[in-house]
């Protein structure tokens, strides 16, 4: 079979000629070349905006690695009294923090900018519904999160750090995706509340940094005082961290994992509701 790079198509049919689509009947194998959907175009725009911001890209990926380096080398070869090596706490902890951080900051900044620069109004004037805009942003956030996870894991399994991937590592994927969704919902709340980049950074850090410590992202949760450990279950990062730690330690039952996932879904719903309440189309009222 010969393969060729993308070759152009005859001009697409104008919008007016396109009949209503049946929901659920994607029929991808038969539909002729269509204009790019708003969703695809927005995803592309969000993606380009993300990758062209080289500094942010660099730190999105480098920051968790730095933490891994610090904690990994600090606790190298040591074990927690419960039995697992330190790296099995540090790696999933830092990874979940890094993924959550990126999923929170990116959409929060984007939403703040879009509102301040009137891009939300631009969207308002078009037939494209707002959820399309948000879901496209989510697609990019999920992509970023998965890339982070791949890179991070690739470094963590180096002999220096000594993380071992268990056979059922794919279980971490749905967990990561749910984590990204939950933190993006939180990011939308932050982006709706803050009007300036400084405010976004301040609020997001205020939320993320204590959460990282209280959820056991930087410190084995099993070593936290009992009451903090109990209280930490009100934090979304705790669920992501807990689930990832269990998966990477190879001690995951599907059941506890499902509970972690349910927790993340719950947080998504909660933050989603709050975001919907505080959402504004424009800074001017």
């Amino acid at each position: 079979m010969t393969t060729l790079p993308s070759s152009p198509t005859p001009s697409s049919p104008p919008a007016a000629a396109k009949g209503p689509r049946q929901p659920g009947a994607g029929q991808p194998e038969s539909t002729p070349a269509k204009r790019p959907s708003a969703y695809a175009a927005l995803t592309r725009a969000a993606f380009l905006a993300s990758v062209r911001d080289r500094t942010t890209v660099f730190f999105t990926f480098a920051f968790p690695l730095v933490f891994l380096l610090v904690f990994g080398l600090l606790f190298r070869g040591q074990k927690v009294n419960g039995g697992l090596p330190y790296i099995n706490y540090v790696a999933p902890g830092v990874l979940s923090w890094g993924v959550g951080n990126a999923a929170l900051f990116g959409p929060a900044f984007a939403l703040m900018h879009w509102r301040r620069d009137d891009i939300l109004r631009l969207v308002w004037r078009t037939p494209t519904p707002l959820p399309t805009v948000l879901v496209s942003r989510l697609a990019v956030a999920v992509g970023v999160g998965l890339c982070q996870a791949v890179l991070f894991t690739a470094v963590a399994v180096l002999p220096v750090f000594g993380l071992h991937l268990p056979a059922d590592w794919p279980l971490s994927l749905p967990l990561l995706v749910l984590g990204v969704v939950a933190f993006m919902a939180l990011g939308l709340v932050v982006g709706s509340l803050a009007d300036t980049p400084e405010a976004v950074a301040a609020i997001a850090n205020f939320v993320m940094v204590p959460m990282a410590f209280l959820s056991g992202a930087f410190y084995p949760a099993d070593l936290l005082p009992g009451w903090i450990r109990a209280a930490s279950w009100v934090l979304p990062l705790r669920f992501l961290d807990h689930g990832l730690t269990n998966v990477l330690a190879g001690r995951s039952g599907l059941g506890p994992l499902a509970l972690d996932a349910a927790g993340l879904i719950g947080f998504t719903a909660l933050f989603g509701l709050i975001a919907a309440r505080v959402f504004r189309w424009s800074n001017r009222t």
């Binding site: 010969t2 070759s7 152009p8 005859p10 070349a33 269509k34 790019p36 995803t43 592309r44």
Partner: peptide, 26 residues
């Protein structure tokens, strides 16, 4: 496909690399 590629307007509707279709067989 080569002739088609020459048609200037041909790219419209092919979508971006995120979405669209890539001809696998010339």
């Amino acid at each position: 496909a080569a002739e088609r590629g020459a048609g200037g307007n041909g790219r419209t509707g092919r979508g971006s690399w995120l979405s669209g279709r890539t001809r696998m067989v010339a």
